[in-house]
Amino acid sequence: MSAPEDLSGLSDAELYRIKFVRRLPEALDELAGPEHGVVDLPLHVAWSGVTSYDVDRPRQRMVLYSTVLQEGMHDDLVAYLNRDFLLAQWPVLRKLVGRTVRTVWENAFPELRTAA
C-alpha cells in the first residue's frame, strides 16, 4: 500500500485543480455516454434542480454535460458523457464550465483545444 499523498501547503486553487484531474478518464475514448434518450443523473451529480435531460435536445444536452463536467466523479464522466458530443460541443461548453474545469480538460486532452 502506498503512502498517502501529502497535499499540505497547497493553495485552495491547486487543491481544486487536483480534484478535477483525479476524476479524468485516461482517454476521451472512455466516454461512452448515450447518444439518444433521457438521462437521469444521480443526486450526487445533480443535487439541485433538474435531474433528467433529453440527450436528443441540444440545449438539455449542453446543460447535462456542463453539470457532469463540474459535479461528476470519474464513473459519472464515462457513463454520461459521449466523446463525439463532447468534442462537437466543446467550443460552447468550455465557456459554460469554470476556468479550472476547462483548463484541466484542455491540458489533458489537446484535441479539445483544437476543437475550441
Rank of each mutant, 00 (worst) to 15 (best):
V104W: 02
E71V: 01
E71F: 05
G9D: 12
Q70S: 13
P58C: 07
L69T: 07
A32C: 12
Y80Q: 10
G49W: 00
E111D: 13
W90N: 11
E35M: 08
V97C: 03
H44N: 11
E5Y: 11
V78F: 01
I18N: 10
F109N: 03
L64V: 06
E26G: 09
W90K: 11
E35S: 14
W47Q: 02
T100H: 07
P110C: 13
H74A: 14
W105T: 05
G98L: 06
S11L: 04
V39G: 13
H36A: 07
D12E: 11
D84Y: 08
V92C: 00
Q89G: 03
D56I: 01
Y80V: 09
L87H: 00
A46N: 04
T67F: 04
E35Q: 12
D56L: 00
D84T: 10
L77E: 06
S8D: 13
P34G: 03
W47A: 03
S8W: 06
A108M: 06
P110E: 14
L77M: 09
S11Q: 02
Q60D: 15
Y16F: 14
V39I: 09
A32W: 06
D56P: 05
L24I: 14
P91H: 04
R102F: 00
L24M: 13
P25V: 13
S52K: 14
V39K: 08
G49F: 04
D6V: 10
A46V: 11
V63K: 12
V101A: 04
P58L: 03
V21G: 02
L112C: 04
Q60E: 15
A3W: 14
V68I: 11
R59A: 13
P42R: 00
V104F: 02
R113V: 13
D29P: 01
A116Y: 09
L64F: 01
L69E: 00
A79K: 15
Q60G: 09
R99Q: 06
D56C: 00
E111L: 14
D75R: 15
T51F: 02
V101Q: 04
P91N: 07
P25A: 12
F109V: 00
V21W: 01
H44F: 12
V97Q: 09
E71N: 15
P42C: 08
M62C: 01
L69F: 01
G37I: 05
V55S: 01
E30R: 07
V63P: 02
Q70A: 12
P34V: 05
N107V: 01
A115Q: 01
H44A: 03
H36G: 03
Q60V: 11
E35H: 06
A116S: 15
L86C: 07
G9N: 08
L77N: 09
